[in-house]
C-alpha cells in the first residue's frame, strides 16, 4: 500500500509541446480534415510567439501580428512539410516576414532605447545579479547595434538569441542554408561586439 504512494507516477507520459503524444505535424495534418485542430497549435505557441514579437516591435502591434501569423499559417497549412514534427520554425518564419513590414517601427524602437531605458533597475539595483547590471549598462549600446543591423542579419541574430531556435531551425524558418545562417550570425555578432567595444580578433564564432 505504501508502495502505491511512493511509486513513481506511472502512466504519465510526457506531454505538451513538440515532443508530446500529439506532435505539431500531427496537429497540422489533422487540421486538414478538422480545421479546429489548428487551434491547439495556437494554444501551444501563441504565448511564446507573443513574447518574442513583443520584444521586437512592442506589445501593442504584437497582438495583431501573432493573430496574423496564425491566420497565415492556417491558410498555408496544406503546404506544411509534415516531416517537420516541430512547427515552431515554420511559425517563427511567418512571424519574421510579418515583422519585416514593421521594419521601420522596429528600428525606431531600438533607437529610442538608446536614450531612455525601459524600466531602470532603480532601487532594486542591489538585488540584481551582477550580470543584469552589466546588461543594463550595455543596453544603449546593444540597442544601437540592433538598430544598425541589416534586417536579414538581425532576423538571424534575434531568432537565435531571443527565439531560442537552433541554427538548423533558423535555416528552416527563413528557408536559407545553414551555412548562410552561420555567416549572417557571425557578421551580426561581430558588429554587436564592435559596438560593445570588443575588438578582440580571436573572438570569432566557429
Amino acid at each position: 500500500m505504501v508502495s502505491a504512494m511512493t511509486a513513481p507516477p506511472a502512466g504519465i507520459p510526457v506531454t505538451g509541446t513538440a515532443a508530446g503524444p500529439v506532435c505539431d505535424a500531427d496537429l497540422v495534418e489533422r487540421s486538414l480534415e478538422e480545421p479546429e485542430a489548428f487551434a491547439a497549435l495556437f494554444d501551444r505557441y501563441s504565448a511564446m510567439l507573443y513574447r518574442y514579437v513583443s520584444r521586437r516591435i512592442g506589445p501593442e502591434p504584437a497582438e495583431d501580428l501573432v493573430g496574423d501569423t496564425f491566420l497565415t499559417a492556417f491558410s498555408k497549412r496544406h503546404r506544411y512539410d509534415l516531416a517537420h514534427r516541430d512547427a515552431r520554425p515554420w511559425l517563427f518564419g511567418i512571424a519574421t516576414k510579418l515583422i519585416a513590414r514593421h521594419h521601420r517601427g522596429e528600428a525606431t524602437r531600438y533607437r529610442a532605447l538608446r536614450r531612455s531605458p525601459v524600466d531602470g533597475p532603480g532601487e532594486e539595483l542591489a538585488e540584481r545579479v551582477a550580470e543584469d547590471v552589466t546588461a543594463f549598462a550595455a543596453r544603449p549600446l546593444l540597442a544601437e547595434a540592433l538598430a544598425g543591423l541589416p534586417r536579414r542579419d538581425r532576423d538571424v541574430l534575434l531568432l537565435i538569441a531571443w527565439g531560442d531556435l537552433s541554427y538548423e531551425e533558423v535555416a528552416q524558418a527563413l528557408r536559407i542554408p545553414v551555412g548562410t545562417v552561420r555567416s549572417r550570425l557571425n557578421r551580426a555578432r561581430r558588429k554587436v561586439r564592435a559596438v560593445l567595444g570588443d575588438t578582440n580578433p580571436m573572438h570569432e564564432e566557429e
Binding site: 507573443y50 513574447r51 513583443s54 520584444r55 521586437r56 512592442g58 506589445p59 504584437a62 532605447l113 525601459v118 524600466d119 550580470e131 543584469d132 552589466t134 546588461a135 543594463f136 550595455a138 543596453r139 546593444l142 540597442a143 541574430l157 534575434l158 537565435i160 538569441a161 531571443w162 555578432r189 554587436v192 561586439r193 560593445l196 570588443d198
Partner: peptide, 15 residues
C-alpha cells in the same frame, strides 16, 4: 554578447 542580448530581450519582453 549573446548573453547580453538575451538580457536586453528579457527586459523588452511583455507577457
Amino acid at each position: 554578447d549573446l548573453e547580453l542580448l538575451r538580457g536586453l530581450g528579457r527586459e523588452l519582453e511583455h507577457e
